[in-house]
Simulated scan of single mutants.
Amino acid sequence: MAFLCDITSHLNVMNLQLQGRGRVVSDMYSTVRAFKTKLSLWETKMRKENLSHFQSCQTMKEKLSTAVFPSAQFADKLNILAADFRRRFADFEAQKSRFELLSNPFAVDVESAPPNLQMELIELQCNDTLKEKYERVGAAEFARFIPDTMPQLRIQAAQTLSMFGSTYLCEQLFSLMKLNKTSHRSRLTDEHLHSILRISSAQSLTPNIDELVQKMRHHQVSGSASDK
Rank of each mutant, 00 (worst) to 15 (best):
Q159F: 09
Q58G: 12
N79V: 08
F74P: 02
M119K: 15
V68T: 09
F69W: 05
Q73I: 07
K63L: 07
M60R: 11
F89C: 11
N79W: 11
P151Y: 03
A157H: 10
F106C: 06
L121G: 08
A75G: 06
K77I: 11
A90Q: 13
A158Y: 00
N116Y: 12
F142C: 00
M119W: 10
L121C: 12
E62L: 05
T66P: 07
D84N: 13
I122N: 07
P151Q: 00
R154Y: 04
R154T: 04
Q125D: 00
L130Q: 04
S65H: 11
L121W: 05
Y134M: 02
M163D: 08
F85V: 02
C126H: 14
A158K: 03
E135Q: 09
T160A: 15
N116W: 02
P147G: 07
M163C: 13
T129E: 08
P151C: 03
K131F: 09
E93V: 15
Y134R: 04
A83I: 12
F142V: 01
A140P: 10
S112T: 07
F89N: 06
F89Q: 10
I155C: 08
P114Y: 03
S65M: 08
A94G: 01
L101T: 03
M119N: 15
E62Q: 15
K96S: 15
A143V: 15
E141P: 09
M163T: 14
V68Y: 09
K133G: 02
G138D: 03
T149D: 06
R154L: 03
L130W: 05
S71C: 12
L124F: 03
V137L: 12
G138F: 04
E135D: 12
E120G: 10
F89R: 03
S162T: 01
A113C: 15
S103A: 12
Q95E: 10
T129K: 14
Q118Y: 11
G138Y: 02
F92V: 08
F99E: 08
E132F: 10
M119A: 15
F85N: 06
P151V: 04
L153W: 05
L64I: 15
A90W: 01
F74A: 05
A94H: 12
L124P: 01
I155R: 05
Y134N: 00
T59W: 05
R86S: 11
N104W: 11
A107K: 10
K61H: 05
S162G: 01
F89L: 11
N79E: 15
S103I: 02
M163P: 05
L81R: 12
L101Q: 12
R136M: 12
F92C: 13
T129I: 13
S103P: 01
P151N: 00
Q73C: 07
F74S: 05
K133P: 00
P114M: 09
R86V: 03
V68F: 08
F99N: 03
E93F: 15
V110G: 02
N127D: 15
K131N: 11
F145A: 09
F92W: 14
Q58P: 01
A90M: 09
Q156I: 00
F74V: 14
Q58Y: 09
Q58I: 03
D109V: 06
D91N: 02
S97F: 01
C126P: 06
V108S: 04
L102M: 06
A72M: 10
